[in-house]
């Protein structure tokens, strides 16, 4: 065991200096979600399947806007799976902690 201790003394330290030196997040990390409203067909499947009730539809059908509550979202990725037009994408942005709930509500509006 002593040998192992001394070996580790010479080795590079395993700890990551996280907030100061950031590692690249892995591909496929589910972070903040982005909805491309140009592609959205307003079917409402994401709202129906979301386990946390984090997506809200304002309006109806193809004219509907979407509101995402990131504070409720638990980043399971089911909405992206359910979406028939593949307009929901997860970005790898994961540092989403915030002091205000309001900042965590994102509205996706259709540009007319």
């Amino acid at each position: 065991m002593e040998h192992e201790l001394l070996r580790n003394l010479r080795k590079k330290v395993a700890t990551e200096k996280y907030p100061f030196i950031k590692k690249k997040p892995p591909e496929g990390l589910r972070g903040k979600l982005i909805i491309d409203m140009a592609k959205c067909i307003g079917c409402g499947l994401c709202v129906f399947d979301c386990p946390a009730g984090a997506i809200e539809m304002i309006g109806k059908g193809t004219a509907a806007d979407l509101k995402v509550y990131l504070d409720r979202c638990h980043f399971c990725g089911q909405c992206a799976e359910s979406c028939p037009s593949k307009c929901i994408v997860y970005s790898t942005e994961f540092e989403l902690a915030n002091f205000d709930k309001k900042n965590l509500t994102i509205e996706f509006k259709r540009k007319l």
Binding site: L5, L6, N8, L9, K11, V13, A14, T15, K17
Partner: peptide
């Protein structure tokens, strides 16, 4: 800390 492959106080 160094023996345990950590930084320790930094």
């Amino acid at each position: 800390a160094r023996l345990q492959n950590r930084y320790g106080p930094l």
